[in-house]
Design a protein around this nucleic acid. Sequence first.
DNA 1: GTCATTGCAAACGCTTTGCATCTGT
DNA 2: ACAGATGCAAAGCGTTTGCAATGAC
Lengths: 133, 133
Amino acid sequence: MSDPARRPTRQRAALTAALGRCEDFLSAQEIHARLSAAGEHVGLATVYRNLQAMAADRQIDVRRTDDGEAVYRACSTAHHHHLVCRACGRTVEVTAPAIERWAARIAGDHGFVDVSHTVEVTGLCRPCGAARR
Amino acid sequence: MSDPARRPTRQRAALTAALGRCEDFLSAQEIHARLSAAGEHVGLATVYRNLQAMAADRQIDVRRTDDGEAVYRACSTAHHHHLVCRACGRTVEVTAPAIERWAARIAGDHGFVDVSHTVEVTGLCRPCGAARR
DNA sequence: GTCATTGCAAACGCTTTGCATCTGT
DNA sequence: ACAGATGCAAAGCGTTTGCAATGAC
C-alpha cells in the first residue's frame, strides 16, 4: 500500500538524466524535445506521466509559469527562489535563509508537517523598467 | 500609445463588482458562473479579456493554482499569503511583514522596480498529516 | 460615424487518458 | 506469466482569437 513498486526503465533513466543535466526549470515539452534531439525516443505521455509521478514522490520540484505551463527541476539543486522580470522573463536566483526559517516556523505553528514552499518575486528588471517609462 | 482609452461598460462594471464582493481568489470560470447566476449576462471571452486587461494594469492580482488555472482577486484586499494543505486544500491566511521587506529589498538590490511577490507554503495540516502515517 | 468592446464559436496548447503492446521481474 | 510501463492518438479543459454585431463617445 505504501511502495508502489516502481520499475526502472530506459525512459525513466533518460528523463532523470536530462533533469540532472539542467539546473533550471524545464517544461515537459522542453524535456521531451531535448530527449528527442538526443536520439532518446520517449513518448510525450510517458514524459508527463513520469514527471507527475516523480513530483508526487517529491523527487523533483514543480512550479507553474505565468502562462500556466508546468515546469520541473531536479530537487538536488541547492534550494533557492527566483526573482523574475515580468517583461523579458529574465530570472535571478536568490537564496533566503530567513524565508526558509520563517516558512518552517509559520507552518509548524499551525500544525502543518511535510512542509515545502514557493516564493516568487516579480518586477521589472532595470532595462525593462527604464524602457517602460 | 500610453493611455489605451478604456471605455466603461456594463460588463466591466459587473466584473469589478463581483471581484469586490469576494475576498478570495476566483477563477475566470467561477466569476463567469457567479455573474450568470446573478442574472448578469457576460460572455466568457469578455470575462477573460477583462481580467487579463485589469491584471495587466495591476488593478487585480493574478496567481496560478496547482493545476494551472488562473485565479484573480481584487487588489484592495489586505495583502497576505497562504498556507495550504496539500491533501485537503484547507488554507490559512498568514501575514509576514518580514517577507514583504525582504522581497522589496532583494528586488531593489537587483535593480528591479514595480515589484510584487507570491509566497505559498504547502504542507499537510494536522488531520491530514496524522491520517497519512 | 468611428472605434473600442462584446458574444459566439472555432481554434489553441498543455495535459490527461484509453487501450493495445511491450518490458522488467 | 503477470503487473507495471510505454506509445499513440484521441479527448479534456482552461484560455485565446477571428469576426461580425453592438455600444460608447
